[in-house]
Computed example of a mutant assay.
Amino acid sequence: MMLFTEVRGLPVTVPDRAGPLGTVTCLTVDVASGAVSHVRLRGGRFRGETVLPWDAVRAIGPEGVRAGSADAVGTAPPCHDLLDRRVLTEAGTEQGTVLDVAFDTGTGRLLALFTTRGEVPADRLLGLGDHAAVVRTG
């Protein structure tokens, strides 16, 4: 298990390259599967943001993210960062703000959302948009 905040800023490396491809800016979540779908990263000073599909991640830990190949890195599609996102129930009731997210480093599966109002099981996440993350009530 690891937290999203622990992954931010980690280097992304590949076996066939001397230096890092970039550093992690955030993790993209696929709400339907309840898992991380991409690792978003930023390269050098003037490079734009790119993404590494989760299935190209070979290992992830406190030292960094290791990818199988630099060829897997692609253009970053638009996404919504789950961290610092407002949390609402499906009825529109305010449930705080996402402080962190726990996930399984082997599968990318979300385990829990930690909000300003406590822990929310990841299986209650229904949606993620411009305005908020939507969760199912109890």
Rank of each mutant, 00 (worst) to 15 (best):
Gly108Arg: 00
Leu110Asn: 06
Val57Ala: 08
Ala18His: 08
Gly19Lys: 10
Leu10Lys: 02
Thr28Lys: 08
Asp16Gln: 14
Ile60His: 00
Ala72Trp: 09
Arg58Asp: 12
Val120His: 11
Ala59Leu: 03
Ala91Cys: 08
His38Asn: 15
Asp84Phe: 06
Met2Tyr: 05
Gly43Leu: 05
Arg124Thr: 11
Leu88Phe: 08
Arg58Glu: 14
Arg136Thr: 10
Thr107Asn: 10
Leu125Val: 03
Ala91Ile: 04
Leu27Trp: 06
Val39Leu: 02
Asp16Met: 06
Val29Phe: 07
Leu10Ser: 02
Glu49Cys: 03
Thr75Lys: 01
Arg58Pro: 00
Gly64Gln: 10
Glu94Lys: 06
Val135Leu: 09
Pro11Met: 09
Gly92Cys: 12
Asp55Cys: 10
Ser33Arg: 15
Val7Ala: 15
Val14Met: 04
Glu6Asn: 10
Gly22Thr: 03
Pro77Met: 04
Val36Glu: 05
Arg58Lys: 12
Asp123Gly: 06
His38Glu: 11
Asp55Ile: 07
Asp104Ala: 13
Val73His: 01
Arg85Cys: 07
Gly118Asp: 09
Glu94Asn: 14
Gly48Asn: 05
Arg40Leu: 13
Gly43Ile: 00
Thr116Met: 02
Leu10Val: 04
Gly92His: 08
Pro77Glu: 13
Asp16His: 11
Val73Ser: 03
Arg124Phe: 11
Asp55Val: 10
Arg136Trp: 07
Arg45Asn: 05
Glu63His: 09
Thr107Gly: 07
Arg8Leu: 15
Arg45Asp: 09
Arg85Gln: 12
Glu94Met: 04
Val87Lys: 08
Thr25Asn: 03
Pro62Ser: 11
Gly43His: 01
Leu52Trp: 01
Asp71Gln: 11
Leu21Asp: 05
Gly108His: 00
Val134His: 07
Val29Trp: 08
Arg117Tyr: 11
Arg42Ala: 13
Pro62Val: 01
Thr107Gln: 07
Ala32Trp: 07
Thr28Ile: 10
Gly92Ser: 12
Met1Trp: 07
Val31Lys: 09
Arg17Asn: 07
Val73Ala: 14
Phe46Tyr: 12
Val65Ala: 02
Arg47Val: 10
